[in-house]
Design a protein around this nucleic acid. Sequence first.
RNA 1: GGAAGUUUAGCUCAGCCGGGAGAGCACCUGCCUUACAAGCAGGGGGUCAUAGGUUCGAUCCCUAUAACUUCCACCA
Length: 875
Amino acid sequence: MKEMQTTYDPKQFEDKIYRHWMESGYFHAEIDPEKVPFTVMMPPPNITGQLHMGHAMDETMQDIVVRFKRMQGYCVLWQPGTDHASLATEHKIVEKLREEGTTKEELGREEFLRRAYLWKEQYGGKIVGQLKKLGSSCDWDRLAFTMDERCSRAVREAFFRLYEKGLIYRGSRIINWCPDCKTALSDEEVAYSEDAGHFWYFQYPVEGSDEKITIATTRPETMLGDTAVAVHPADKRYAHLVGKTLILPLVGRKIPVVADEYVDPAFGTGAVKITPAHDPNDFEVGLRHNLPMIRVLADDGTVNEQGGAYAGLDRYEARKRIVEDLKALGLVVKIENHTHNVGHCHRCNATIEPIVSKQWFVKMSPLAKPAIEAVVKNKTKFTPDRFAKIYYNWLENIRDWCISRQLWWGHRIPVWYCDDCGAELCSREDVAVCPKCGSTHLHQDEDCLDTWFSSALWPFSTLGWPEETPEYKYFYPTDVLVTGYDIIPFWVMRMMFSGIRYTGKVPFRDVLIHGLVRDEQGRKMSKSLGNGIDPLEIIEKYGADSLRLSLVTGVAPGNDTRFTETKVEASRNFINKIWNASRFVLMNAKDVEVPKDLSGIKLTPADRWIISRLMATIREVTLSLQKYDLGIAADKLMTFAWDDFCDWYIELSKPALYGGDPEKKRGALGVLLFVLTALLKLLHPFAPFVTEEIYGYLPGVSGDLIVADFPRYDSKLAYKNEAKTFEGIIELIKAVRAIKVSVGCAPSKKVKLYLVTDARRLISVNKNCILRLAGASEIEFTENGAEAGEKTVSKVTGIAHIFVPLGELVDLEAERERLRKELARVTDEIARADGKLSNKNFVAKAPKKLVDDEYAKREKYIEMKEKIEQQLRSL
RNA sequence: GGAAGUUUAGCUCAGCCGGGAGAGCACCUGCCUUACAAGCAGGGGGUCAUAGGUUCGAUCCCUAUAACUUCCACCA
């Protein structure tokens, strides 16, 4: 039998243990009709991604749940995978091409895609390795990729079904356009921020008059596409101009003045320039008044040929020039500073241009309704449930989803156009011949689908849907989805409506939402701030277990948390404690094995107390884990491990271990091993590596912890009353310690205890423990403590009145003072109890147990008071 | 403008059904007590943001207020 090293050093075993788990196939989920399935879909990280703290927390939480369920005997599938991340990846590759001095257009679609796959092969695996470092116990045999064959097939099927029902359509509408990425985006992919800008006031001359109308704009360059000026119908200032024609300066176009309710007369000048092709509101106005739509910006954000003299200029350069030119014409009234909300590309942060463009859309309202209903009806539950409201907010206000992207890396839209008859053909299979006219001159739509279109299918596409594979039938719907609240609109919501639509079932029963991991100052970790902390560096320094623990302790579900290295250190210290406690048990446990149960052991009161505490902990941890209260579960566990087991029980076991009575020693060791084993099991989901490592040293234990049974609460071992009685011993020990400290008695100096007590038997049975833990030499029972003599410090506890003769250390005046304070405290307690009990309503209405408890407390304090008074008199 | 959250010890945060406020870190005192100084023992420190209400009883439930955070919408 090898011995445990004297210090906890995670580097010695974490990789080794992970390899062992992999080789043993413990992560692999094989359909087992005898077992109940438990399925978790890992949110697929981007192939371009690096593991960050957010992932680390998300993965840790999933792994805790998954390991817990696996140990409970479920057939657990934790499905891993990666996301092709269409835009993010293409963006990176394009950047790389730029460095190489080429462009994607130069390479052509085919070559570009070849490069992209190469990239995926090269970098896509990186994050997988990082997840392994963290201890993720997912089924790597089933590693999926959103663009693999299975998922791609599901994407086509989903698209086809929606298209068939008219829920996918193509149309020209205002969309969010990123001029840098040169693609359309969904509403969710636009992030707004308050940017400082200007409010420019321009004058547009009225045709056939000297009059001019003043408009205000934040985007002067869009005036090139103005096709009207709108005023409020009830606005008297402009009533005479409605129907008149204006001459658009610099352009010379004649545009009408229209009356529209949309205009707020109180804002700006009350007259609004209308650019239907570049503003969502103007677009609506344009439709109502049948205005022409003139697009003046090209895909790259420069002014297009419609811009006349400004054609070819970048939008901001054009803006500057237009303002200058209008100034020269004397048409600029004023320029104000103005901060307003500007949309930015979620990926590259470029300013978004609203542009009219022909794109593919998913009609949302028929999909949103059942998705809302499913949560209302509790088919899917959010934890914490307040996130259901966020989810409703999104779905209730949702607009049609723009799903086409002008990108190459992704799922190409499965629609073909016939060059001869113009037919638009959506198909599950590639189309070579036009079914309408028989032509073979067809071309596929150039665009790709939004990445989230495929992620939305993740819970079932990975299982083989639309085929009714055995996996799909067994593992779907999944049990819990774990993700951050920031992903609700992108992913959770879309999986919900997709799952319901395509499979007829909600994709998951529970959604466990967590918050963001922030930096020490509470700021979001981000690349631009450079405040991100690399989880791998933390793992390198402290080990994965410490990182995992630090990410779940003291965190309430759904709340953000701050990452501090101090917290990791605290976690590391805890694990070190476990390590050393285990080492202590094992170095004493020669020729002993972990007992299967406790039936062969004669249990001492201390044994029963720790077993009772273990049972309570098992129950609390199990319940908390079932409710996904990971922070509470970890907290209970750590308190039990450190306070109860290490600080108390191990110390309590020492008299038996060192006392020379082989039977007592065997009993204590049996309990130590029994409790330690259970503790390792309970702790395993949180700190899998170190617990598995220690488990390997346990004598007489075979197999691996990862697949051991999770401890079960056993009411026969609860020993509630005995445990409560034993708390009296603990209180007694603490009181003696406090007495010694209060007079500056050296801890190593043993003192004699005189006890006035009714619990002589209880104390006698636990005498050795009391002596050792309290630092006492002997115990003598007395009637009134007089034997202890003058120079004595006394203290009253629940089971005894303690007298400790401390000779010269005792300052009688200080002792009197201390007793007076104690007396005051006890008197307050009695008053408090009296106050409650004299309240007739309390006695009448409060639960009986509470009232009885209050009487009992009063009794106890009165007794204590008498003893203290008596002691004060005798001094 | 709408929504959600937060406000508890010096700091970071927990707190299940309403029934004597907790942890970690920091701080103070004393200890290398042969598992552990990444430790042990003892200790100090809180009007649970404010004001009302419900209740026998409120950190917890309700209402209002304030401050902060986040998300959404958005007036060109």
